[in-house]
Write a protein that binds this DNA or RNA. Structure first.
Lengths: 340, 340
DNA sequence: CTGAAAGCGCTTACAG
DNA sequence: CTGAAAGCGCTTACAG
C-alpha cells in the first residue's frame, strides 16, 4: 500500500516536499518535482483521499439528490451533472430519494449530515423546513435545480411561462376546449414544477377569456408515459364535450395521451392536438410539438454554480446564470394543428 | 464542529469509550453507553467518515459503473442498487461511463484507483484487460451484472437462452420469416448481451431448420426506442419478402418497431408479430409480448453479493445466487399471434 | 526551496 | 468495563 512516505524516500525528499510536489501549491524546485513525480508513478502511488480530506476539509465529492433516475428529464440531468463533475475531478454520490417516508429522513439526517460531501445538488426536489435545516446545520452549499425550499442558489426554468406558452400555442391555433394533464400535486403544491405549469396554463386561458367555456378540463396523473395514457383515456373517453387539444405537463405524458387517442380511434392532430414539455428524445419520433428544455445543460450549469460557490466561499461573487431562467423553446411539429 | 472529544468530555468518559459506545464493538457498560449517546445527540455529533475510514480501511462506499443512466434497464438496476446500498448504510458513488475514450480511462486509472470505495459494481460493461488490471491492483472486490471481463463474481441472465426462447415463441406460432433487430456490436462481440441474444436467436432458427429460408434478416441498431423505430422502418420497408415477425433485442427496440409498423400501415400482430426483452414499464401499455427480466431485483442481488464478499473477505463462502442465471419469464401479450 | 513537527478525527490494541 | 497512547496518511504553518 504505497504511501507518501514511500514516494518521499524513493525521491530522497521529505514527505512535506513530496506532498507539495504532488498536490499542494507551495514552491518546489522544478527538478525536485520531476523526481517526486517519477517516484510516484514508479510505485503507482495515489494519494488517499480520506487522509487528504481529513486535513483539508475538502472531499472533492458532491452529493446529488434526485427523486427519479428513470424518468427522462432526471436521467438527462444526472448524466449532465456526472459528466461535468468528472471533468472537474469530483466524485458524485447519488441519493435517489423516494417521495417521502423514513428512508428520506434517513438520507438527510444520516447520510447528508456526515461530512462526506463538499456540497449538495438537489434536482427537482421540494425540500421541507426540516430538510433545509438539516443541510444548513452542516454549512454545505446547496444548489437546487427546479423544486422548491431554501437553497444557496437555484437554477430554474420559468415553468409558469412554459405552461402559458404551451397553452397560448393551442389558443393561437384556434382551440377553445383545451384540457390540461397535470402532474400529481399540481394544485396542492402551487410552487412545484407541475403547479407552475398548471398556473401558466390557467393564466393563458384566463387571458384569452375561454376559461368559462365550460370549466377547465384538468386532470392530475403521474408524469410518465403510462400516466399520460390512463389520464388521456380518462380525458378523452368521457362522454360530452371532448377537448380538441391537450396540454400535457411532460412529453412522456403527451406521448401517452397520443397513444390513448389512437386507442380510442381519434386522429392526432385531426381530432386532437397534443403538446408536451421537455424535448424528450422520443419527441421527434412521435412528431410531438413541445416546449423544449435542456436538462443535460442544466445539470452542467448546476455544477458550474457549485464550483463557483466552492471557490468563492464567503465572497458574494455574482454566480453564473444567476437570476435568468434557464432556456426553453417552443418546437412545433405535427401533433398540433387547427381544430377541425 | 463537534468531534468525538466533545462527546467524551460531556459524557465524562474517554474518547476511546465514547468511540466504543457509538460505533465500535467492545464492551461498554449499558449505563455508560446511554450517557454517551445522550451526549452525542445533545450536541448533534456525527462521526467523520473520513477519519473512521482512515483507520479502519473501510469507506462504507461502493462505486457503481454503468454505461447509461437513461435507458430503462440501467435506470432500474441503478435504483435497485441504490435502495439496497442505502438500506445497508452504504453510499453509492456513480461513474457513468461513456463507451470508450479518454474519459473512460480516467475513471479507471484515477477515480477508481483511489481508495475511496470498498468495492465496485459494474453494470453491463465489457471490461478490457487494462481495466480489469487497474481494478485488481487495488484489491477491491468487483462484482459484475451482465457484461464481460474478469470479475470476482458475475450475476447474469442467460441471454442466449432468452434469445432462443423469444424466437421459439415466434416459431411455435408458425412464423418462418423471422427478423432479428439486434443491438450494435452483436456480431462483433459475441459475448456481449446483444451478441448472446443474437446467438440464441440463430440457435433457435437452426434447430427449426428455417435458417435457409432466404437467409436471416438481421439488423443491428441502437438498443433504444428511436433505434427500434429506424431499424423497424428499414426491416419492414424493404421490398420483397417482408418478415412476418420481429424479435427485438429489447422492449424499447420492440416498441420502436411497432411504431414503425404502424407508420407503414401494417397491423400488429395481424401483419407483423413483435416480441421484445425486458419487461419494460411501457410493455403493458403497448400490450407487448416479451421475455421479462427484473433489473431492480438484479441490482439488489448484486448488492447482496458485494456485502457477502466484504464480510467473508478471504473466506471462500458460497455466494448467494452463485452460478444460477438470473430469472426471466416469457409473458405473452397481444403483439404476437400466428401469421395470417 | 525544503524539512521537522503538529494535527485533522477517529479506532484499536494494550494495560489495567 | 475503561483509559492512555499510538497511528491511519496526509497537509500545512513554521523555521530555516
Amino acid at each position: 500500500m504505497a504511501a507518501i512516505g514511500d514516494v518521499a524516500r524513493l525521491a530522497g525528499v521529505s514527505k512535506a516536499t513530496a506532498s507539495r510536489a504532488l498536490s499542494g501549491g507551495g514552491y518546489v524546485a522544478e527538478e525536485t518535482r520531476r523526481r517526486v513525480e517519477a517516484a510516484a508513478s514508479e510505485i503507482g502511488y495515489i494519494a488517499s483521499p480520506d487522509a487528504a480530506s481529513l486535513v483539508t476539509g475538502r472531499t472533492k465529492n458532491i452529493g446529488v439528490i434526485i427523486p427519479f433516475v428513470n424518468r427522462w428529464f432526471f436521467g438527462e440531468v444526472l448524466e449532465g451533472v456526472e459528466r461535468a463533475l468528472l471533468a472537474a475531478g469530483y466524485d458524485l454520490t447519488l441519493y435517489n430519494l423516494s417521495e417521502q417516508g423514513p428512508q428520506r429522513t434517513r438520507v438527510f439526517d444520516f447520510f447528508l449530515a456526515r461530512k462526506r460531501v463538499d456540497a449538495v445538488i438537489a434536482i427537482g426536489v421540494d425540500l421541507d423546513d426540516h430538510e433545509v435545516a438539516a443541510l444548513e446545520r452542516r454549512e454545505k452549499p446547496l444548489v437546487a435545480l427546479g423544486g422548491s425550499g431554501g437553497a444557496d442558489a437555484r437554477l430554474s426554468v420559468d415553468d409558469r411561462a412554459v405552461g402559458q406558452l404551451a397553452t397560448e400555442h393551442l389558443l393561437h391555433l384556434g382551440h377553445a376546449r383545451i384540457a390540461h394533464l397535470a402532474g400529481v400535486g399540481a394544485s396542492a403544491r402551487p410552487t412545484s414544477v407541475q403547479g407552475q405549469r398548471r398556473r401558466g396554463h390557467l393564466d393563458a386561458l384566463a387571458a384569452a377569456g375561454v376559461l368559462d367555456d365550460e370549466g377547465p378540463h384538468l386532470l392530475e396523473t403521474e408524469m410518465s408515459l403510462p400516466g399520460g395514457y390512463t389520464g388521456g383515456l380518462q380525458l378523452l373517453g368521457h362522454p360530452g364535450a371532448r377537448p380538441t387539444a391537450v396540454f400535457a405537463a411532460s412529453d412522456e405524458m403527451a406521448i401517452g395521451t397520443i397513444r390513448a387517442a389512437e386507442k380510442l380511434g381519434l386522429d392526432v392532430p385531426g381530432d386532437l392536438s397534443v403538446i408536451g414539455v421537455d424535448g424528450h428524445e422520443y419527441a421527434e419520433m412521435f412528431e410531438l410539438t413541445t416546449v423544449e428544455q435542456y436538462p443535460g445543460e442544466q445539470g452542467r450549469a448546476a455544477v458550474d454554480v457549485v464550483m463557483a460557490l466552492l471557490l468563492d466561499d464567503a465572497t458574494a461573487e455574482p454566480l453564473p446564470d444567476s437570476g435568468a431562467p434557464l432556456p426553453t423553446r417552443l418546437v412545433v411539429r405535427a401533433t398540433t394543428s387547427a381544430p377541425r
